[in-house]
Design a protein around this nucleic acid. Structure first.
Lengths: 151, 151
DNA sequence: TTTATTTAGGATAAATTTGTCTTAAATAGA
DNA sequence: TCTATTTAAGACAAATTTATCCTAAATAAA
């Protein structure tokens, strides 16, 4: 039995986050982008990514326009209000930062799992980070060349 | 599209950790335990759990004896040396605390993903916690009634 | 109005994870 | 030696995640 591929976020969530950062970086330049352009810049499968981005349209994280000259964009004024926690919660739910580390449906100070207190700070830090990180600052890092979405 | 069930560890890893804690808690009392008893105390599917525990036998985390009066146990003297990171790494690998949060194969200070610096501390804290938490202390918490593995 | 372009959404398939069932191997005791 | 018990291990199946393909709906421009 070889080990699994468990990471912090699901593939869907990774693609969703990367897509939002790329779209935001282009919206900063007043460019609406098509899904084909998005996936070229984040190295992800197009139809699958389209579904994830579509779900984020429904969640009102990103806007879309159909037809020629259409595509996706994020309102400039909203970028500082759209937080990573919104994207992660929409795709992966809140278990990663609110759930029990050992998967107990209920786990609290009254009846904690053996790792409960070990996880309290890690989860709180993760939640705080996701809650305070805006799509704006991540898009700025990308646009300025300080960070990358693929190699 | 409803959201996923992404959590910190895979189901396999959750079961593996819980099984190790239960087995250790009984080994502290010099009791060897059968897989049927394990799953009764951690609320997990028996055959599936048996495979996971079997993999941890191969990884030398836990010992097994076949036949009547057989079962699983952990050497008392080794309990303080067996760390959560050993169990997690054996089952889920190291991506959760070593990998890039956005799934880039390479991601470092030279060419960081947009979230790289946001994750540095969270990953380090998680790794440090797993690295410093022994199966002994978790089993003691369970055995003393301070924590639970199921409701 | 027609055509071309683009997102929306459904059906389907592949891959992975989670789970079950059956048999083999080991071993203790009668 | 024979039987019963228990882990080991393989085949198989179900559920979930990841991914593809095709058609519908929207819309801009000719």
């Amino acid at each position: 039995m070889t080990h699994q591929k468990q990471s912090m976020f699901s593939k869907s969530c990774e693609y969703g986050i990367k897509a939002m950062i790329y779209i935001a970086s282009q919206s900063m330049l007043d460019r609406r982008v098509k899904i084909g352009e998005v996936v070229e810049h984040i190295d992800s499968p197009v139809a699958f990514t389209a579904k994830i981005v579509g779900a984020l349209v429904k969640e009102n994280v990103v806007q879309s326009v159909t037809g020629p000259y259409g595509g996706f964009y994020i309102d400039k004024h909203r970028m500082s209000q759209i937080m990573m926690i919104d994207i992660v919660t929409a795709i992966d739910g809140d278990s990663i930062f609110n759930g029990c580390g050992l998967g107990l449906k209920e786990c609290d100070n009254e009846q904690p799992c053996p790792m409960h207190y070990k996880f309290v700070k890690i989860r709180a830090d993760l939640k705080r980070m996701l809650n305070s990180t805006s799509i704006l600052e991540l898009a700025q890092g990308l646009e300025s060349g300080k960070s990358i979405l693929m190699r």
